[in-house]
Computed example of a mutant assay.
Amino acid sequence: MVSSNIRGRGVATNAAGRFEQFETVDCDDGWEGDEDLPPLRTEISEEIARSVISYNRSPDLPFDRSINPYRGCEHGCVYCFARPTHAYLGLSAGLDFETRLIARPNAAEVLRKELSSKSYKLATIALGTNTDPYQPIEKSHRITRSCLSVLSEFRHPVGIVTKGALIERDLDILAPMARDGLVRVGISLTTLDADLSRRMEPRAPSPKRRLAMIRRLSEAGVPVRVMTSPVVPGLTDHELENLLEAGRDAGADAASWIMLRLPREVSGLWQEWLRDHEPARAEKIMSKLREMHEGRDYDPRWGHRMRGEGEYAALIAKRFALAVKRLGLATRTPPLRCDLFQIPAQVGDQLALF
């Protein structure tokens, strides 16, 4: 039974981060239950960023740089591969990740300086690769919108990944960028089962709402990729073709997939979720995952971590390939334009008057 004060959260525990020396554990002293505990509220702190563009060298990723306006994510997706990053902050990958969030209010200001640097080399920036840029706190903090405004001003190409319906608010920026070939959006669609989505992704928009987002964006001229990620063996894998078709019918022109990944603390959190929510399927799901990773819960090697290997992984890849071909969905899309980039005139520039 889930404690009453954490209903609506993705996980039920808050084990100390892997770098912490001590851990606190809740225990029942026999005097009273937890039914009177206050709801677990989201706490937001601020971090003054010194840099905002993060670079990577992963051959598994189609981009080499990204921006994340927030640390932690209130959507609370139990399977989120980014949960372990909270350990670097001295926090838990469990409830801390979805309740103790960090906003970077000066992100747009720092981004402007980085893009204006003479040493900056242009390439598409990915927005929201670690945590969702349109999670609920963006409504009040508007950091993603500020960063997007800077990218638009510089005519800089950007790829966005989100589950958040708040992206529709920014169509006034996205639509003109799309007309110039400067933006593409990926919408993650994990399942069409509203109940399963609510349990796995408790504070993210429902599947129906995400399809509406795809439709709204595509109707505004913003190209959208439906991301069937993660595929969960024995739980959502049977939906693969239906997810792709629903995304296509809503207006998506491209598609991708990633297998469920369980790095570090995510494995324990996921298995605890299975015991609480899908006990009859838990053994089968974990068996399939280990089958793809040489007996381990997760294989972090480049070239393997996103898809796994073996007969089952090959079957999912084949089903995906057949489905996108039948549906007319692209798996590769034209690169976003980089030839329009320009550093706007700044206050005080000598040529500003001419």
Rank of each mutant, 00 (worst) to 15 (best):
L61R: 03
A314V: 00
S116M: 01
W31T: 10
E74M: 15
K113Q: 03
Q350F: 02
A12C: 02
L89Y: 04
G17V: 13
M306E: 10
E241C: 03
K118L: 13
M1Q: 00
L289I: 12
E294M: 02
P157T: 09
Y70Q: 07
E311P: 10
L189V: 04
L235V: 09
C77H: 13
E46Q: 12
S256V: 00
G8Q: 03
T99W: 02
E114S: 04
M227E: 05
G181L: 04
L353R: 08
A93D: 08
P344R: 07
Y120H: 05
G308R: 04
V2T: 12
I316T: 11
A165G: 14
L327E: 10
A126S: 15
R198M: 15
L340E: 06
R179M: 12
S256N: 04
P233G: 06
E153Y: 05
S197E: 03
P279N: 12
Y312N: 06
D64N: 03
F81I: 06
V226M: 12
P105Q: 09
A178W: 07
E294Y: 08
V183D: 08
H304N: 10
R290T: 04
D172V: 07
G310R: 02
D36V: 05
F63N: 01
L217Y: 01
P69Q: 03
G33R: 01
R216H: 12
R337V: 04
T190I: 07
E283I: 02
A87G: 09
Y55E: 12
E32C: 11
R71M: 06
A220F: 04
L111D: 02
F154L: 11
A323Q: 12
R281G: 11
L89W: 06
Y298P: 06
A103P: 12
D297K: 13
H141S: 07
L269R: 07
E278H: 11
A282D: 13
Y120M: 05
K163N: 05
T99G: 02
I102G: 10
K288R: 15
T13Q: 02
R104V: 10
L101P: 14
L171G: 09
L243N: 09
S140L: 01
P335Y: 04
A82C: 01
S116D: 04
S149M: 06
A16G: 10
L340D: 13
